[in-house]
Design a protein around this nucleic acid. Structure first.
Length: 143
DNA sequence: GATGAGCGG
């Protein structure tokens, strides 16, 4: 006598089904999931500048696409010349995005512009220091 | 006197 035991454990559809993690969208409001670039800020990083570009020329170049609140070109602290990149602040991120979409890759004073949304780096910004003394405070709060 | 991807005066 043979006890043939069917060990084929499969669902009614006949296909072995693997349960993976559901594709959850990354809930990060500060980052765009399509390109992993920040779109919430209205600060633009403008790179690829020519060596002789100053702030007023950039202001006149970007004021046509929105309200430019601040333009800052990073100069070298020693030689005083331009380091080839700067930052353009707009009043709203819609203007910043339209200006980036209009001026990115465009040539300006002989060099093509490399525009992208600026990082959250602010001089003297909110540097989060991990205070480990809070851990002891939490443990001591339990009395 | 120069340089050419990047993220700040």
């Amino acid at each position: 006598m043979f006890l043939v035991r069917k060990l084929t454990a499969r669902n009614p559809t006949g296909n072995v089904r693997f349960f993976c993690a559901p594709p959850s969208s990354t809930p990060s409001p500060n980052y765009n999931t399509t390109n992993n670039t920040t779109t919430t800020n209205n600060k633009l990083f403008v790179g690829g500048l020519s060596w002789g570009v100053d702030e007023k020329s950039l202001t006149e170049a970007f004021s046509s696409f929105g309200n430019v609140t601040e333009v800052r070109i990073i100069y070298d602290k020693d030689s005083g010349r331009s380091r080839g990149f700067g930052f353009v602040h707009f009043s709203t991120n819609n203007d910043a995005r339209s200006a980036k979409d209009a001026m990115d890759g465009k040539a300006f004073l002989g060099r093509p512009l490399r525009i992208s949304f600026a990082l959250e780096k602010v001089r003297g910004g909110p540097v989060v220091v991990p205070r480990l003394s809070n851990v002891t405070d939490v443990s001591r709060r339990n009395n």
